[in-house]
Nucleic acid binder design. Structure first.
Lengths: 362, 362
DNA sequence: CCTTAGGTTGAATCCGCTT
DNA sequence: CAAGCGGATTCAACCTAAG
């Protein structure tokens, strides 16, 4: 394939992303966002407790024979990406624990310079239905410049303003893509198994590019990168193999007016009210397993367990449940009911919670 | 160095961690927590805006010539760790973007099986003074079993109880170690550059070990792993090279009272409860042959037979088989699916089983 | 028009003992 | 050792239908 003389802006190019990137002029792209196959290694079917089957991502493009095969693939496309990236451009790659460590090593070995790893914390992840692991509630993005000395672009002030005037952190809380934003095919099924939310791309593009820049996505899918680039006044180039995805993406992007949807600014910025589980007091050493708690008069007693529950005679449960049970009441606010002995006085455990909140606010 | 016959429990062993691990008997350790050197490639000194110098992690043990050297080091210690780990044990490794990707690949290449990556979100991270990147507000832990098929230990119920009865997620919000918890040397300087908070280890040890287990930390430092292990009724083995750290750690751990009543340290799981055959309910007169059971909505029906099976139209079998068949589902937990009429209400038969279990316990 | 109840769904390396 | 089967396991958000 011969090298193109001019950049094919705001288009989706069909084909293998490595060949396509090799056909583009070198040092011509300001920003690359890549959502490569994760190489999930799934076993059999997975059912929810209500017996419905989870619609797994088992597409052919996500299958690799070995770690070696995946690494070879990563090296090939990241090398091609590096050639077309401007010297002061940056690249983002997203992945999960299945693949992100291998991608990270490949990035480092090719000479990219890591600026941050950024955690996308999901407000609404899929639970762990079998109770065998922690809920897999995040994905990881790696953000790199082309080399250690590169003068990359980072819109620090914009990110800070975006984040209520405190520095944007490396962990971002955003919902997964569902509801009206989730693209469906003619049969009403999801058009792509792993469509990313626009809010995620909004922050990426806002942080690391300028209006008029060229943003390239080598695994374009249904075109979230292109859609947000257009909304934010950037040019995009999408590379994609599958005809079905391209059709959906073209229709999607065509429908977008180049103006900013301000809802994207407000929705993700909402701050979480910090909930403090009782167990937090234990792991922070403010209480110890085995401590005896009483009500303010000392009439009722319970012992603190290491898992953050309480034990009373023949009963075990949360501070609220046990508080209700010992009083023979319907309900109880355990935070205000239970007290601990401290220097001869009874101190309400809610004071300990206040202490934790104060630490978290600082 | 010859192989020790018995495990040196609740001690700190001085020396190179690879040699020390090789001297321990194989498959003898339940849990490994490792905080290896980070290979921070800091060019020049970092200064705060007020021109004070940041006390960066520049100790001699934290310098490596190249990625290759770091990978060789990782491979060596993770291989030694693998030998001493029990087949159903697990390992945690913590790191930042400087090293965690390389550690992750080494883990995978050695045959460890990733269970989760867990993000430690810091409530109070060091800001990015230069405003050139996102605030580096997290570190990453990788949790692995020894192999894909291993029957590792995960205290799911304890973690859920700890988190106010919702599944524990893969992102943990915890403060960094400072204040009174931060150990100081005689000159009032921090005794270790990267002391981890006890809260972090509390969750790790609670989640993935049992009271009485052996927890090994090959980069023991000032002994956070040992301190928390002791508090939670686990045995520890600490490996450390530096005499100064060992002194601090020994003093620290000696001052800790070991725990308490181990019944307060474990959360019983339903999975471990004694199995009660459905027929037991008949034997004990809690149900009678001929009783009609329904699902909670009353849509499906079956009759109880004297042999402890159920009869539905044209089908007979266990409570699970019949529950699955009537719903046309792959599988069904009959205990939670089937209900009986009692004083005008539908009562789940699982309550009858609970009654039997309570009787058996007393 | 509203509220509420019920159903659906999401990048998932998701069981273990007995025969 | 493979097959069989008992039975343990879910959270937030959105959609639709019913009231």
């Amino acid at each position: 394939m011969k090298t193109l003389q001019t950049l094919p802006l705001n288009q989706i190019l069909q084909g293998d992303c490595i060949e396509m990137m090799n056909s583009l002029p070198e040092k011509s792209v300001d920003l690359i966002f890549a959502d490569p196959p994760y190489n999930l290694q799934l076993g059999g079917d997975l059912h929810r407790p209500n017996n419905t089957k989870v619609d797994a991502c088992d597409d052919h493009w996500d299958q690799f024979d070995s770690f070696k095969a995946y690494d070879d693939f990563s090296k090939a496309w990241l090398k091609a990406a590096r050639r077309i990236l401007k010297d002061d451009g940056t690249i983002w790659v997203i992945g999960s624990y299945h693949n992100i460590f291998r991608v990270g090593v490949t990035l480092q070995d090719l000479g990219y310079w890591m600026l941050n790893d950024v955690i996308w914390r999901k407000t609404n992840p899929m639970p762990n239905f079998r109770g065998r692991r922690f809920t897999n509630a995040h994905e990881t993005m790696i953000w790199c410049s082309k080399s250690e000395k590169a003068k990359y672009n980072f819109n620090y002030e914009a990110m800070k303003a975006f984040n209520d005037d405190v520095q944007m952190r490396s962990d971002w809380l955003l919902p997964i893509c569902n509801g009206g934003e989730r693209l469906k095919d003619d049969a009403g099924q999801k058009a792509h198994p792993t469509q990313k939310p626009e809010s995620l791309l909004y922050r990426v593009i806002m942080a690391s590019s300028k209006p008029g820049d060229v943003v390239l996505d080598p695994f374009f899918g249904t075109g979230t990168t292109g859609a947000v680039a257009k909304k934010l006044g950037r040019n995009f180039i999408g590379l994609e193999r599958e005809t079905d995805y391209i059709k959906v993406a073209e229709k999607r992007i065509k429908a977008i007016k180049g103006t900013v949807d301000t809802s994207l600014l407000t929705t993700p910025a909402k701050r979480q009210a910090p909930r403090i589980p009782f167990g937090t007091l234990l792991e922070r050493g403010l209480l110890e397993p085995g401590t005896t708690l009483t009500d303010i008069k000392g009439r009722y007693q319970a012992k603190v367990r290491a898992d953050g529950t309480l034990s009373a005679a023949n009963f075990r449960g949360s501070i609220h449940q046990v508080g209700a049970r010992v009083q023979n009441a319907q309900a109880c606010n355990g935070w205000t009911f239970w007290h601990m002995e401290k220097a001869g006085n009874r101190v309400c455990i809610d004071e300990l919670r206040e202490q934790v909140r104060a630490e978290m606010a600082s």
